[in-house]
Design a protein around this nucleic acid. Sequence first.
DNA 1: TCATACTGTAACTTTAATATATACAGTTAA
DNA 2: TTAACTGTATATATTAAAGTTACAGTATGA
Lengths: 139, 139
Amino acid sequence: MNSDFVIASHSLVLLANLPDHMANSDTIAENVCTNPARVRKVMSALRKKGFVRTKEGIGGGYILNCNPEKTTLSQIYLAISTGSLKPNWCTGDPDQKCIISSNAQNVMDQIFYESEMHLQSYLNEITISSVLERIKSLE
Amino acid sequence: MNSDFVIASHSLVLLANLPDHMANSDTIAENVCTNPARVRKVMSALRKKGFVRTKEGIGGGYILNCNPEKTTLSQIYLAISTGSLKPNWCTGDPDQKCIISSNAQNVMDQIFYESEMHLQSYLNEITISSVLERIKSLE
DNA sequence: TCATACTGTAACTTTAATATATACAGTTAA
DNA sequence: TTAACTGTATATATTAAAGTTACAGTATGA
């Protein structure tokens, strides 16, 4: 699992909670505890999918561009981390005679793909707002 | 996601398919494409959970000790990779005043825990035998 | 219009995770 | 009693992830 997903979720929750729904990469980076360049990279991906819009120049930053009541972690996962469930390491060898060795990775790929679908159906029940509520309820 | 889960699954499928349900770490390592020491480490964990038993000494190796029709990938995941869905990287800072920064990781932990439960309920539908069938159907 | 404060992105460096290699004690069978 | 195994630890190598730096492009406002 890619931690970009965590950064994206955290950042959107943060924006949702701010009165003007806006913050720059320095502010987000401090809240998330990472560096501004990494935040910009993740936010840039979110912008391309329409979750935020950006304002460049002085007084600029990222502005929430989606309804936090309607936006789910599934959508964020899809935008940021599709395919990250599957490990990079591959099992077996496609060139071996043994069909288990040569086909195991293909079947594992299927299984990871289907797992990811199931994961997404769960994440689809969790909205940005509900994450914010959970955070507030921990106080 | 830990690739040990892939190695464990592949190895059990391989054993299930062998006439005597037995193989040593060299044979498994060659089929899986890794080194024998790694295979032994994974198989040792499977042994501790009763999925295989081992025979040391000459002519020894790993012997399947579970019903492949009944053994699911969920059980294997539980034995080998529990907790591996969650990334190691942590968001926010527990010591910050902002409750989003200080609580985000706790909530993400909850979400990853629940995600893992859902993942397991899906993996619980997949048996070692069904993986073997999928592999054979790819020929 | 020029200095300033932003984003976007790429290249480089550092760190951490993952995988491999090696070694050897313990076990069992011939 | 030797040979072929497992179990496990440790060291090494490789790869992925994260952090750092740098700078071009853009908007704002003095």
